[in-house]
Nucleic acid binder design. Structure first.
Lengths: 332, 332
DNA sequence: TTGAAAGCGATACCAC
DNA sequence: GTGGTATCGCTTTCAA
């Protein structure tokens, strides 16, 4: 292996000079800088990450905890992951991928072993066992999601409550009064998944403000599950808010089978990321899930926590909803 | 930070004893082992990963290079990633996630810096620029896919050529003679993506063996793209092999619109992983993409390369096709 | 079965 | 603007 000493020798300088030439943490004369750069290129030198981490107590690695096997939206997860990895690389960080399955132990392992400088945690539940564990770590963390007790933690997410409200108001503004929510799979609620509950809260409040009955049903995304969900909702709604991407396809198909046209008989607003709108016959009006923005922002916030010489005050950022009007909503 | 010396002191033994108690690389008396374990638990000791990597020249990290933004099947990628991360953890390895975008430079960075002990590379192209780079690394690598020149590299994948043959034979065995391939998006072929070409090769050979005309069209998975693809294929095929999961939904819908029933008028075999079969009205007969097995196997092979004291001969494993019969194929 | 001590390859402090 | 070197926390050889 080529070491920093090899480079120093080849360039005719000391190891510290090579180190400083690399980090830029002290001035180096152009001539020296150039000789060092040449030696590095010639020898194909790559600093040893472990040695660097040991000496500097910084690993330049971010942990990303993702729900890798679950009933929640796969494309959305991929978009988060992509955004985080890409943004991290722009800050010269690498990403260590952990599964949610590892739970608290995984966080402690990678943080305790100083493998990572900061953690980004997706799919946070309202009352998440990992939250107290994160607060005890030496490394800062950023949550994608919003636990019920976020004190002391930095969080970022779409404002799902406002998003639900925006969906309802979009329909209400076009005359709809009988509006139902087709929610995520039952398991998502049972786990206390933060975003599902926040969406439901916003939906309930918005429909209540309209003085209408609140109809909200979880929905298993199988064809049978969607059939069942539609039956529970009943035949007389005119507006459907669908917070379940996987259910969209069977849902639209079953509406067709039932002879209910979209948007003539039923208007539909779907919650899903721009890039994952299913290629259905009707172009869906959606509330966007800005997964890319959220992921990028999570990295930015993590970098701020790492940069700040003193403790940065924890902050929660909820992105405002964006409704993209397409063809699945019509006035009543 | 709690160090190994703290643990040694607390347990009243030497640091080397703690190290060996941890690694099990030399016999330790039960009494000592216990005192060490107690001290570790009490102090909450986690070995410093960087220090360990520096001293042992092993990082216990695997690099996984995934195509994070692409036109290829997102659920399949997720299934690979999940399988790799899960299998890696079972061998006490962590996973560093790289994007394909980083190309050769990314490989050299993480390998040169000794961040990882081995690399697993997904989405290999037939003539992949990364292949020569991988051969030059000190760390072993496993490809998921099959480059045209795999000499010296360990590869694992579904046998796409045999899979295409199996699809065609499945249809031919039920009397179909006019069989067409709905392939991946044009870009996938243009990139020279290995699996797409191998599938096409197998398809062409199998249809040729039947003495029938070979009809194979790439397919953009938008609704318009699928429409276009169907038009190019023409109206008189009775069997469709669909190697494009995203296109399935619009495809089935357009067939319905055209009044062509599945499977009465057209039989369909789809290539897709078991867990990602779309919830369509017709339960699709599929050729499985065993993403989980392939991912797990990739890790196993990487471990074998790491374990073997001498160079293990490179090996290519192609998993045999499995057709799962459901309701989208009927005899003619 | 255990201990002492020499590295591993960087960083960053202290000098000049 | 540059050099020397103690130090980071662990593994592993050598010795007992």
């Amino acid at each position: 292996m080529v070491t920093i000493d090899d480079v120093a020798r080849a360039a005719g300088v000391s190891t510290s000079t090579v180190s400083y030439a690399l980090s830029g943490r002290r001035p180096i004369s152009p001539a020296t800088r150039e000789r060092v750069a040449a030696a590095i290129a010639e020898l194909g030198y790559h600093p040893h990450a472990g040695a660097r981490a040991l000496a500097s107590s910084r690993s330049s690695v971010l942990a990303l905890v993702a729900p890798l096997r679950s009933d929640i939206n796969v494309p959305v997860i991929m978009e988060f992951v992509t955004a985080v990895v890409t943004a991290a690389r722009e800050h010269s960080y690498d990403v260590l991928l952990l599964t949610k399955d590892e739970g608290t132990a995984g966080l402690q392992r990678v943080a305790g072993g100083a493998m990572v400088d900061a953690l980004i945690v997706m799919d946070v539940e309202s009352d998440d066992a990992r939250v107290p564990a994160l607060l005890k770590l030496r490394q800062p963390s950023v949550l994608i999601g919003l636990p019920s007790e976020p004190t002391g933690l930095t969080c970022v997410d779409l404002d799902f409550e406002a998003t639900a409200r925006a969906c309802v108001e979009h329909l209400a503004g076009r005359g709809h009064r009988r509006i139902a929510l087709v929610g995520p799979a039952p398991g998502v609620y049972q786990r206390g998944t933060s975003y599902a509950n926040r969406f439901l809260t916003g939906f309930t409040a918005a429909v209540g403000a309209l003085g209408a009955d609140v109809v909200a049903e979880p929905c298993d995304p199988s064809r049978a599950g969607v059939r069942d969900c539609l039956d529970r909702i009943g035949p007389d709604v005119t507006g459907l808010v669908v917070h379940n991407e996987a259910a969209l396809m069977p849902l639209l198909d079953l509406l067709r089978v039932d002879g209910r046209r979209v948007p003539e008989d039923v208007s539909v607003v779907a919650v899903c990321p721009r890039d994952a709108v299913p290629p259905l016959p009707v172009r869906l009006t959606t509330a966007e899930i800005p997964a890319h923005e959220v992921g990028t922002l999570a990295v930015t916030m993590a970098m701020r926590l790492l940069d700040s010489p003193v403790a940065t005050p924890p902050e929660t950022r909820l992105l405002p909803p964006v409704i993209v009007e397409r063809d699945s909503v019509s006035p009543i």
